[in-house]
Design a binder for these strands. Structure first.
Length: 430
RNA sequence: GCAGGGGUGGCGGAGCGGUUAACGCGCAAGCCUGCUAAGCUUGAGUCCUUCGGGGCGCGCGAGUUCGAAUCUCGUCCCCUGCGCCA
């Protein structure tokens, strides 16, 4: 949610920043918002004056009545006021709803370091790490190989749940858990608190986290109940401190959330053939931080680095791209995409997404903190980054670690979580 | 699902038609004091403001009234017990 005070105080700066988004409609919204807000404020003053008058009369009536005198004249005036207030109120309510509509939809102010551009083609690759593996055999599609090795069953999942679902089996299911566990341990060592959030959330809480007008169609809802299944652990973690005032010394709050994610993925053609890349349900370990505004950039780099380290330790070649002004969602002020190498397609595919949401998300949720040594309250900043989305990783692992004989090598750092297993399928297991 | 109880500031908790939402804890500023502690004074919801002040605020939404935290209706949530149950 946009900060209306910024618009009132420095409309020029806001306009300039919004302009970078390359979406003329935003500037139109801004103008309309300013107009409606000005009108709203003047109506509010009008209504407030009437209320003040009514309150004064009410007090007088009380006094006059206690004295046993006749309050008829005062009562008449008092009775006439509520109708006037009601008329103004109707107009001002409408205006307030409109300004709120704009505040919810105007995108966050961009950081200076966000590259200027129109679409994802203008995203800037800031670094590339790792050596792309050279293979002199044809790399099999990850889903196909998993099915051949009896490590995944897509057909039976389709039978009971439909396309986009799968059974993970045996060593591959274990690999999925190993990935999560490895990511969790890494974050726990860095002081992040492990969180298993609720997987269902009520509408009012979800509204604080996303714009349901846009987002609702991609979520699963529970029939007959006011509940939605979470699309990511980011959502219940962000909403966790909804409406609270935190003490500054408790910041930063660093969380490591682990949960399945449920997404309808409506209109996604073929769900990327059969496989794990784009599915209705997957497991994810998510980093989330609430911090003081001045620390936002520092922790943004920290969570990006955490994810990069994970990629390096798993020996997956990756690139970090700085997402450009035209391709950023409305919530983030800055975003890195971490993309991993797919040797089969010889391109980088999206694995993790790291966002600095500044106060945009927290303002809407009403999460503030009290500054130490003062009584002032300020909106906290929120940051989030994927640590691991297991299905996407299964794909790149199966591709990058595929051997010529059609097996999958287990990354060294994951072996302790796999009973020392070096290769899938296990020779012994067969 | 049924029955009962309850939702008030950062927290606990009073108020149950009429000036300023009592009191306590915690917090902040200042005073006092060898230091610390204690003590004393003041301050702190939110919105608008021409910075004088004014409005709103007691889960949410309607209503009654000149006036509602307080009365009426609806609704959501929480707690306790019963029921059900991995």
């Amino acid at each position: 949610m946009f900060d209306i005070k910024l618009i009132r105080e420095t409309p020029g700066t806001v306009r300039e920043n919004l302009g970078k988004r390359q979406e003329p409609e935003y500037l139109k919204w801004l103008d309309e918002l300013i107009e409606k807000d000005t009108e709203w404020r003047s109506l509010k003053q009008e209504a407030d004056k009437l209320r003040a008058r009514r309150n004064a009369i009410s007090k007088e009536i009380n006094i006059v009545k206690k004295e046993g005198k006749d309050a008829k004249k005062l009562l008449e005036e008092a009775k006439s006021i509520p109708q006037k207030i009601k008329e103004i109120e109707e107009k001002s309510k409408e205006l307030a709803e409109k300004t709120n509509w704009y505040l919810m939809r105007l995108p966050n102010l961009l950081k200076e370091s966000v590259p200027f551009g129109k679409s994802d083609e203008d995203n800037v690759v800031e670094k590339e790490v790792g050596k792309k593996p050279k293979r002199n055999f044809e790399i099999k599609h990850h889903g196909q190989l998993a099915a051949e090795l009896d490590l995944a069953d897509f057909e039976r999942a389709v039978k009971i749940s439909g396309a986009g679902f799968f059974y993970l089996k045996g060593d591959l299911a274990l690999l999925d858990i190993a990935l999560q566990r490895y990511a969790i341990d890494k974050l726990r060592k860095k002081g992040y608190t492990l969180i298993q959030p609720p997987h269902l959330m009520r509408t009012d809480a979800y509204e604080g986290v996303v714009d349901l007008a846009d987002f609702d169609t991609v979520m699963y809802k529970v029939d007959g109940e006011d509940m939605r299944m979470i699309a990511t652990a980011e959502h219940p973690m962000a909403a966790m401190y909804k409406g609270e005032i935190l003490e500054e010394e408790k910041l930063p709050i660093k969380l490591c959330g682990v949960s399945p994610c449920y997404r309808r993925e409506i209109g996604k053609h073929g769900l990327d053939e059969r496989g794990f890349f784009r599915v209705h349900q997957f497991n994810k370990v998510e980093q989330f931080i609430f911090c003081a505004p001045e620390d936002g950039e520092k922790y943004f780099e920290e969570i990006a680095r955490n994810a990069e380290e994970l990629l390096e330790e798993l020996e997956i070649p990756y690139q970090r791209t700085n997402v450009c002004t035209g391709d950023l969602g409305i919530i983030a002020a800055k975003k890195y995409d971490l993309v991993g190498y797919s040797p089969r397609e010889d391109k980088f595919i999206e694995l993790m997404s790291c966002s600095n949401c500044t106060g945009y998300q927290a303002r809407r949720l009403g999460i503030r903190f009290r500054k130490k040594g003062s009584t002032d309250k300020e909106v906290v900043h929120t940051l989030n980054n994927t640590m691991i989305a297991t299905t996407r990783f299964l794909r790149v692992l199966i591709e990058n670690y595929q051997t010529e004989k059609g097996t999958i090598e287990v990354p060294k750092v994951l072996r302790p979580y796999m009973d020392g297993l070096e290769e899938i399928p296990s020779k012994k297991a067969k």
